[in-house]
């Protein structure tokens, strides 16, 4: 087992030190098992479910497909970093109130994907929402309440702006 003697990852603005890690460890594994950040979930190990979505330098990517030791020069943001004060973001709030959460395993990844979508596009069309979320599998909800949650956030943000 080859190990990197030592490396650092900057997650949610904080530097974390990793030692004695195996080279093949994914960022998802390191976040969950070494850094105590289990909010990102693993369900497929191949980028086909989106449960492990994090932001790397602002891009929403699957952390299961990022070699952890390769992210040493990047800014990593996880679901734990969305709201440092412990309250819910508007997206998280809408997921709860609109019934977008059942078992909840896909939820952190979807919350990240929705935040990313709405940061880039504040009034997405129905098809833009669906395409943006097409990499996040939800097995419980059939997506209907997830779309409702996105609609709610868009409407509230629009109302807040106007």
């Amino acid at each position: 087992m080859s190990t990197n003697e030592f490396y650092s990852l900057k997650v949610n603005g904080v530097d974390h030190h990793v030692s004695d890690a195996w080279i093949g460890e994914s960022l998802l594994y390191v976040l969950r098992e070494r850094l105590g950040l289990p909010g990102s979930k693993g369900a497929c190990e191949q980028g086909e479910c989106g449960s492990c979505t994090v932001f790397i330098d602002g891009a929403a990517v699957c952390s299961c497909l990022v070699m952890a030791a390769s992210a040493v020069e990047s800014e990593i943001a996880t679901v734990e970093g969305l709201n440092a004060d412990g309250t819910l973001t508007d997206v998280q709030e809408a997921f709860v109130t609109e019934g977008a959460v059942q078992c909840g395993f896909c939820t952190p990844g979807l919350v990240m994907a929705v935040h990313h979508l709405l940061d880039e596009n504040d009034s997405p069309s129905e098809l833009e929402v669906k395409e943006a979320l097409s990499g996040n599998i939800c097995r419980c909800t059939g997506y209907g309440r997830i779309f409702a949650a996105v609609d709610k956030v868009v409407a509230v943000r629009r109302g807040a702006l106007s």
């Binding site: 979930k41 996880t78 734990e80 959460v101 909840g104 919350v111």
Partner: peptide, 21 residues
């Protein structure tokens, strides 16, 4: 009523402890 999930807040924050966590 459409009572909301008591575990919803923890689940959206990634705080809910799945067995794998």
């Amino acid at each position: 009523t459409s009572s909301l999930r008591p575990d919803g807040g923890a689940k959206v924050k990634g705080d809910f402890a799945f067995t794998s966590d």
